[in-house]
Design a protein around this nucleic acid. Structure first.
Lengths: 353, 353
DNA sequence: CTGAAAGCGCTAACAC
DNA sequence: GTGTTAGCGCTTTCAG
């Protein structure tokens, strides 16, 4: 019996064969060309046919096969979002900041009709990210965080991979970045702490990350502007991991360098630093003022609302997507800077005189 | 001049034409068939040819075009991860729990060689998720949270869409779920609170979500077991949004029903509830014991480490992926339950007598 | 062991 | 307006 089931791919038992355009065409009594045109809103088909076919397709739960369409069109509307992680600790994503950024990018992409393919790649093998492009899986790549791999990213971009990176704008360019003005952010936080009457301000963050290095630069400039000499002992390289702050606070205590404020390079760091401080019997903000970075949702809900440097993540997501789409259209998008603003809450309240 | 640039698609200016298999074939002086075989580790090519072609491909940054391959093979190794959101508040993702689950799924998928396509869809139009399957973009769908849309999910699964859902196992089945035993979780939390000497335990969480309804069921059972009558005024429907807990605490105060403990259906809720409680002048855990749900990373770093019901998210991600892959292979995977355990920290410390 | 050729599901000339 | 047809880049029989 030559029933209609005679597809080439031997339909596995118990699996409904997937509907194709020919099927719809047959049912509608037209050719596939017409179905294609109708489903793509071509003005070449009569409105009635279009409506009839659209209705038929919907009722049959038929959707044009995206893969075939893309192959034919030579372009697919998907972009890859790459989240690098450090090999030893998969934690890169544990920071709520990532999640917000992720959501912002997802929304911006959806809005423009793009699909989002998400990959986590080992930060030491960032080149793998390029394969997503080479294999035609994605038209371009958004990468969150440049980590310590500036050179690799530069090389990728030079090879022609459409790439946009969330991170610090590097002086030697090479690829398009979107990020906050980290120097300004560092200055903002430090100036505020100084205005609170603090002089011995600890800096927590790992400067191998360009963003952090720039925030520290801002911190230095602000101190210098007020004639305060930066005490090297007050700078602690803490990883972004949650435990980083705890260790940093312990280290700070060990160094016996007195301090009256902490500028942490992420809210997560700041929040856990406060916990550690309180365990040491120090009172925030009475004994120590604390400023964080990011303004994650949790920051304001904390029992002691956190003073922090807010990054406009929504805008960041939008700009990343906009820049990448420009790049896909073979333009050379300029790097962009999104707004940074200081949000003053409780953790830096000036001690009652 | 008929140079080799003569591709059909008019290469836009400034864009390097993408390498194809023919290009590699020409360079290697073989046919595309051989290149294909070499790159797919077919035993039909001599090891030397294979090595030579593999090396050539790598040096040219060539990767087999995934779309074409999938079209030809009639199967693509990608699964869609769908994150529903409520229309009014895009916040669904602001809960760190999502992020952890997301990471766990990403890792499990990567490990098995699958790509992950992520989509946020309006929770009221969950059917859109099926299109990802119908359009052949993904071989199956993982959905996080069934929200209030059990029926729609059931219908989708019945239409043959390979679907696995993180959520509560429903008695009427219909689709495969992976989730914790929420009733047991609710019991665990409540029993612990009772063991702490608490009798008037408030429940915070919106029972339109099946998971929450089941946790409440566990809460009720535990109370009943100890002969405690549940005071209806102590149950507050709070949304998962961060502000939900704040409102819930205000409502609780308004109802003037005395309480000595709070069981919140997420850590985010618990953390913000504690903040609200402290603002009302109540001391945790002295006046009120608090238990959360999820054991998100932040929970233990909070200034008052949170007692909470831990869900094994890593295992959850692995199971979701395993179940979906079974389903893609045309089996009927059974719903699974992952481990739930109570983590006792500070917020429920028994008051010093 | 390797090459030639057919075709995966779709779109866009080009005919009618 | 609609149908016919030739590929998009790949894999895989089938010949050699």
């Amino acid at each position: 019996m030559t029933n209609k089931q005679s597809r080439k791919t031997p339909t596995p038992p118990g699996a409904k064969p997937r509907l194709q355009m020919v099927d719809i065409a047959k049912m509608a009594g037209v050719s596939t060309a017409t179905v294609s045109r109708a489903l793509n809103d071509s003005p070449l088909v009569t409105p009635e046919t279009r409506a009839r076919i659209a209705e038929l397709a919907r009722s049959m739960n038929y959707t044009i096969n995206a893969g075939a369409k893309h192959l034919r069109l030579g372009q697919n509307k998907t972009v890859a979002l790459v989240l690098p992680y450090e090999r030893d600790s998969r934690q890169s994503v544990s920071d709520p900041f990532f999640l917000s950024m992720f959501g912002a990018i997802a929304d911006a992409l959806t809005e423009r009709g793009y699909d989002m393919l998400v990959s986590r790649v080992d930060a030491s093998e960032l080149d793998c990210a390029a394969q997503l492009y080479n294999a035609g899986r994605a038209m371009g790549i958004i990468l969150i965080g440049q980590w310590r791999h500036h050179e690799q990213l530069k090389a990728m971009a030079e090879r022609g991979v459409p790439l946009v990176v969330w991170g610090a704008q590097m002086t030697d360019g090479g690829y398009c970045t979107v990020g906050c003005d980290n120097i300004a952010g560092g200055e903002l936080a430090t100036e505020h702490l100084i205005a609170c009457g603090r002089r011995r301000i600890a800096f927590i963050g790992d400067t191998v990350f360009p963003e952090v290095a720039q925030r520290m630069e801002g911190y230095r400039r602000a101190l210098a502007r007020h004639g305060i000499v930066a005490d090297e002992r007050l700078s602690i390289a803490a990883s972004f991991l949650a435990d980083g702050a705890r260790q940093a606070m312990a280290e700070l205590k060990r160094r016996q360098a007195p301090f009256d404020a902490v500028f942490a390079c992420s809210d997560l760091l700041a929040l856990t630093a406060i916990g550690a401080l309180e365990q040491q019997g120090l009172k925030v903000p009475r004994d120590v003022s604390v400023v964080g970075y990011d303004d994650v949702a949790m920051a304001s809900y904390f029992h002691l609302p956190l003073t922090t440097v807010r990054q406009d993540i929504e805008a960041g997501g939008r700009e990343l997507v906009a820049a990448l789409i420009e790049r896909i259209g073979h333009q050379e998008p300029a790097s962009r800077v999104v707004a940074t603003e200081l949000v003053i809450r409780e953790t830096s309240r000036v001690p009652a005189a």
